[in-house]
């Protein structure tokens, strides 16, 4: 961008995210859990729109996080061409080092670490990781890790959830799970993200390529809201976990 400025280039960036998935106690928790796991543990977690911060209402936090941990431990790490594999090797040894470095950071700041570490003795395989009892000020809640790593943070009420959701440098995507229609619209309009899905994992129509842009330090002017209308079983979803 800096160099393009000299020749007045128009630029269009899609950058990173520390995207919140906000789970309220009134949500369909089975579907919410599916989506939370899918959006961080699929594609090796190497996804700009991954839901890497799960904000979970305090009243359901223990149960939800316990179920998430049980499911996460069953995720199959393996050869990328094995049809059973859910997480393959990460792109590069440098990236592995980066992803694993957050385990130390999480322990230092007092989060509970579940899973993680290298898998196998060659290649770039890592186990999925879940950080529990995290606070939003922690490194694991603020920085994009870009691996199969989920940071789970409790919140007390809607106002606190919104404050936590917006308290990051990023603003690419957000996900909401609630059955309260008023809250869904209210929250979706206030959360600072270029794209917001309600009761859905990411479903991006092709047109989004030209619409989604949200950058560090830039808040979105135009917001795309996606409200799931159907919960059809006809949708085949390859779930992670």
């Amino acid at each position: 961008m800096a160099q393009g400025a000299q020749t007045l280039k128009r630029v269009h960036f899609e950058l990173g995210g520390k995207n919140p998935v906000v789970v309220f106690a009134d949500a369909d928790l089975d579907r919410a859990l599916d989506a939370v796991l899918f959006m961080i543990y699929s594609l090796n977690g190497e996804r700009c729109t991954s839901s890497s911060r799960a904000l979970v209402e305090a009243s359901i936090y223990d149960e939800f996080s316990t179920r998430a941990a049980e499911r996460m431990k069953k995720i199959k790490v393996g050869h990328p061409l094995d049809p059973a594999t859910e997480i393959g090797p990460l792109i590069h040894p440098r990236h592995v080092d980066k992803v694993l470095s957050y385990i130390g950071a999480a322990e230092k700041e007092g989060a509970t670490v579940i899973g993680g570490g290298r898998a196998g003795d060659k290649g770039n395989f890592v186990n999925p990781t879940l950080y529990l009892q995290a606070r939003n000020t922690m490194k694991i809640a603020q920085e994009e890790i870009f691996g199969p790593v989920l940071t789970m943070i409790p919140f007390a009420d809607e106002a606190e959830a919104l404050a936590i959701a917006n308290d990051v440098r990023y603003g690419l995507a957000a996900y909401l799970w609630t059955k309260d229609v008023g809250r869904a619209h209210r929250f979706a309009q206030q959360v600072e993200a270029g794209m917001v899905w309600v009761n859905s994992e990411k479903r991006a129509p092709p047109a989004d390529a030209v619409r989604r842009h949200q950058v560090v330090g830039h808040r979105p002017r135009r917001r795309r809201l996606f409200l799931r209308l159907l919960h059809g079983d006809e949708e085949h979803r390859d779930r992670a976990g």
Binding site: K9, H12, F13, L15, G16
Partner: peptide, 21 residues
């Protein structure tokens, strides 16, 4: 030594904000 190409008018990128390799 990277050039500023006067003929290219627009740049589109999907990149991560930071840290970038």
């Amino acid at each position: 030594r990277s050039p500023s190409i006067p003929t290219s008018r627009r740049l589109a990128s999907l990149a991560r904000a930071r840290p970038a390799p």
